[in-house]
Nucleic acid binder design. Structure first.
Length: 882
RNA sequence: GCGAGAUUAACUCAGCUGGUAGAGUGCUUCCUUGACGUGGAAGAAGUCAGGGGUUCAAGUCCCUUAUCUCGCACCA
């Protein structure tokens, strides 16, 4: 058959075409189908903040592999795509863009105007992201694409908010929260990153009222003293016992504050006296509540000092700190300054140091929700892969604090709460109420804030399927089978989906959480904009193809571990694709137009055919088993090795003599097997490299349908052919040995030689005879001669031993006796080493008594085998030395 | 402080339920054989971080030490 495949693999030529083909045929479509078992995955919706990066490529590749594999196994597969509005992250980007392009601020535009810009941004990037995902080969059901702020999902958000509010699980309160002075919004605990930083410990003397004494406190943030409302000591601290109940004076601002006792204070730390600033420190806040202390917020939303800070008003917190320290020093209040390492909380979006402060916010009461989510993992309704991540999940949930969900932003789901302007009453409802519940006033104003972006993504597994409607999709596809995501968003997202699903669907949102690591650069650094070491997946695809990218990302790494991204590896993957491409060209060149039926050739399959068929069967099992365990890297490696080493390097070579020979039946048997194995190779490889496998499939007329919907190979026990495998292994071992001998003796491949075989048993003789043509084709052998008479063997022959036979190559003038003796002595040493090991094992009574019988047997067989081989080598050495 | 991971060939990494160490890249030598030089053949190269222990048998299980990452919690 002619092949119209070009000589070199060129992914750009066909990847888009193939993708369009799949789209036209609706292969990605998921429908409720009672005759099939559903298998569903929700795509972690990428943020619309920009383009996708290589980390997305990894995340999506893993999911696409699972989805394609399950589709081929006959499941009704749903891969639910979509994008996330990413409230704070996107708002930051849009603000930046408007400022750069139009010189306008958020406030200049106003809420409506700003949102218009944000939606424009969303349209642009949402589209780009989808384009990128298609380039990667994602087989998502695009008809179902959702956006966290589209109508249906927004309704789900409102529904959940109201529901939780009515259950008392959402409340509004004045509490201490994390404030980002740059983004000017509150943040949840998960959104604060802690970094160890060098700072100072300022020791300040607070004068005690009506006394000459002072009490020395230590602080890392002197500016917060403007908000001090107490000094606390440990009740058991004898140094300060006598001061409890007295008053101290805050220096510089001269406020009198009580000296109180609280167990929280650690006498060993610092000076043992703690200034209490309830409005600007989480621990102080708690102490303040216990002692009914006033809360004095001393900062504005941009972290400048407010009017409560007296003369420091208007300074930013660092200027204020500097000035306060100076004035303390001048006034003699400063006892000492010490270097101090401490953890500083920073905003996860802009790295600005977070300011804890009290503020009116909305919270979710987490404890009742966390409980079932903890249970679900403990009783394995949700399983983490790798298992160790369940610890991280559990630890976080077991120590969870209430979730601050309100954000002082515009881009997001506006909180469905309304305040009466007349009586301050609060109403929570889907639509704006016509009048106040309490006073009947119609002056109602909606809460200005939006919800934490993770509030909506928490609902993703069911909101995308139509919830709160009781849809058929929901009944059929929920719960999803596996969630694939990076370990970095377990807190943000996995946890919140878990409790949301349990609360609103009464069932876990996913059965498995398959965790992967981060893609790092070749030096192991995190990829980031500031380092400029990011890799654009589109550029990689342009150069190497999507298949090579996918294969690179999936091979050679294990679940949960980070990956270093090397361009060299991409080349290796591309080369592999090229190898398969050319193997296909070979097959096509040697295939006839009409399909060969198995029935017609089944009696003509030779040992090589039986061997590769048996191996294929085993490999299919190994690949499937690894997939079942989410060991996608190992699965891919198995396919790779089978294709390259067994199919290309050996099997194709083994068919050549028959393909080019006269015997039609033999030829057809080879053709059949080549084609059959290639067909199954394409299936096994398809989830990993969908484009090239489909392209090849479409180019082979006898392959019906499409690779994407081909049936995944099933392991059949009765297809294992141990005998053929053993025979081929013997032949391959012999050929390898011959090649090795020749290479070591520096014999040119063009110098062919006769092979003289001294068989040790009939079976080995039969196998070698059967493999004659392979020795000729692959071992530079001209003919094979059997003998039992050692005298017949020329003295100038080099030799090698295999299990059951001794092989000689008479190379006459080419042989260097000294060299041959050295080579044999090396072989002798190797065999003696092996024998020593085996004998050691077999003379160990413990081993004989306790090891499984078959392993003992194996060792015994080895002993005999190695001993025979050694005898042969020794004999040969003796002959040579004479 | 608590927890997790890593430590295997020059480099990057696999190695699942314990049974004589693997891959890719690089390196050395050879090969224009009618699929592929993005290729083929052969080869060198590892006290599996150190130390204990369990076991007939440990890279694999347990303990411990060291180094490096990463989470979480932090005491002002």
């Amino acid at each position: 058959m002619n092949t119209n495949l070009p000589k070199n693999y060129d992914p750009n030529e066909f990847e888009s075409r193939i993708y369009n083909h799949w789209m036209e045929k609706d292969y990605f479509k998921a429908e409720v189908n009672p005759d099939k078992t559903p298998y569903s995955i929700v795509l972690p919706p990428p943020n619309i903040t920009g383009q996708l990066h290589i980390g997305h490529a990894l995340d999506h590749t893993l999911q696409d592999i699972l989805i394609r594999w399950k589709r081929m196994q006959g499941f009704e597969t749903l891969w639910q795509p979509g994008t996330d509005h990413a409230s704070i992250a996107t708002e930051v980007k849009v603000v930046e863009k408007v400022r750069e392009e139009e010189g306008l601020s958020k406030l200049d535009l106003g809420r409506e105007g700003f949102l218009e810009k944000a939606w424009q941004w969303r349209d642009e990037y949402g589209r780009k992201i989808v384009e990128q995902m298609k380039k990667l080969g994602n087989s998502c059901d695009w008809d179902r694409e959702r956006f966290t702020m589209d109508e249906g999902l927004s309704e789900a958000v409102t529904e959940v908010f109201i529901n939780l509010y009515e259950k008392g699980l959402i409340y509004r309160g004045n509490r201490i929260i994390n404030w980002c002075p740059d983004c000017k919004t509150s943040l949840s605990d998960a959104e604060v990153e802690h970094e160890e930083k060098g700072g100072h410990f300022w020791h300040v003397n607070y004068p005690v009222v009506d006394s000459d004494e002072t009490i020395e406190i230590a602080t890392t943030r002197p500016e917060t003293m403007l908000g001090d409302t107490a000094v606390a000591v440990n009740p058991n601290d004898e140094r300060y016992n006598h001061l409890i109940g007295k008053k101290a004076i805050v220096p510089l601002i001269n406020r009198e504050i009580p000296i109180i006792a609280d167990d929280y204070v650690d006498p060993e730390f610092g000076t043992g006296a703690l200034k209490i600033t309830p409005a600007h420190d989480p621990n102080d806040f708690e102490i303040g509540l216990r002692h009914s202390l006033p809360q004095i917020v001393v900062m504005n939303d941009d972290a400048t000092i407010n009017k409560n800070g007296g003369k420091f008003e208007g300074l930013n917190r660092y200027e204020a700190r500097k000035q306060i320290v100076n004035e303390l020093k001048e006034a003699g209040y400063l006892a000492k300054i010490k270097e101090h390492q401490h953890n500083v909380g920073q905003c996860y979006r802009c790295d600005t140091v977070v300011e804890p402060l009290t503020s009116d916010q909305w919270f979710v009461n987490m404890e009742p929700l966390a409980k079932p989510a903890i249970e679900a993992v403990k009783n394995e309704k949700i399983k983490f892969v790798p298992e160790r991540f369940s610890k991280i999940y559990l630890h976080w949930l077991e120590n969870i604090r209430d979730w601050c969900i309100s954000r002082q932003l515009w881009w997001g789901h506006r909180i469905p709460a309304y305040y009466c302007q007349d009586c301050q009453a609060l109403m929570v409802s889907k639509e704006k109420p016509h009048a106040c519940d309490k006073c009947g006033s119609d002056k109602l104003k909606q809460d200005e804030d939006v919800l934490d972006t993770w509030f909506s993504s928490a609902l993703w597994p069911f909101s995308t399927l139509g919830w709160p409607e009781k849809t058929k999709d929901l009944a059929y596809f929920y719960p999803t089978d596996v969630l694939v995501t990076g370990y970095d968003i377990i807190f943000f997202w996995v946890v919140r989906m878990a409790f949301s699903g349990l609360e609103f669907m009464d069932e876990v949102p996913f059965k498995h959480v398959f965790i992967h690591g981060l893609v790092r650069d070749s030096d192991g650094r995190k990829m980031s904009k500031s380092l400029g070491n990011g890799v654009d997946p589109l550029e990689v695809i342009e150069k190497y193809g999507a298949d090579a990218l996918r294969f690179t990302l999936v091979t050679g790494n294990s679940p949960g571990n980070d990956i270093r991204f090397h361009m060299e590896k991409l080349e290796a993957s591309r080369n592999f694709a090229n190898k398969l491409w050319n193997a296909t060209r070979f097959v096509l060149m040697n295939l006839d137009e009409e399909k060969i039926a198995y029935e017609d050739i089944k009696d003509d399959l030779n040992t090589a055919d039986q061997w590769i068929l048996s191996r294929l069967n085993t490999v299919a099992k190994e690949v499937t088993d690894n997939m079942d365990k989410f060991e996608l890297g190992l699965a891919a490696q198995k396919v790779y090795d089978f294709i390259w080493s067994e199919y290309c390097d050996w099997y194709i070579e083994l068919t050549k003599s028959r393909l080019w020979g006269e015997n039609v039946k033999e030829k057809q048997a080879a053709q059949y097997t080549l084609s059959y194995v290639l067909n199954n190779i394409l299936k096994l490889l398809h989830p990993f490299m969908p484009f090239i496998t489909e392209e090849i499939w479409q180019n082979i007329p006898v392959f019906e349908g499409s690779a994407i919907v081909a049936q995944w190979p099933v392991y059949k026990e009765n297809q294992v052919n141990k005998e053929a495998e053993e025979k081929m292994e013997l032949i391959m071992e012999a050929i390898k040995n011959l090649r090795n001998v020749r290479a070591e003796m520096n014999v040119a491949p063009s110098k062919k030689a006769k092979l003289i075989v001294l068989p040790g048993n009939d079976q080995a003789k039969a196998t070698i005879l059967e493999g004659k043509k392979y020795f000729v084709a692959l071992g530079s052998v001209t003919e094979i001669e059997f003998t039992t008479d050692k005298e017949q063997i020329p003295a100038d022959a080099v030799s090698t031993v295999i299990n059951g036979a001794e092989l000689f190559l008479p190379l006459d003038e080419l042989i260097d006796f000294e060299k041959e003796i050295q080579r044999l002595e090396k072989e002798q040493a190797k065999l003696e080493g092996e024998i020593k090991r085996v004998v050691g094992k077999l003379s160990n009574q413990g081993f004989l008594a306790k090891a499984p019988e078959h392993l003992v047997q194996v060792e015994k067989e080895k002993q005999v085998k190695y001993q025979q081989m050694l005898d042969v080598v020794l004999e040969r050495l003796q002959a040579l030395k004479k």
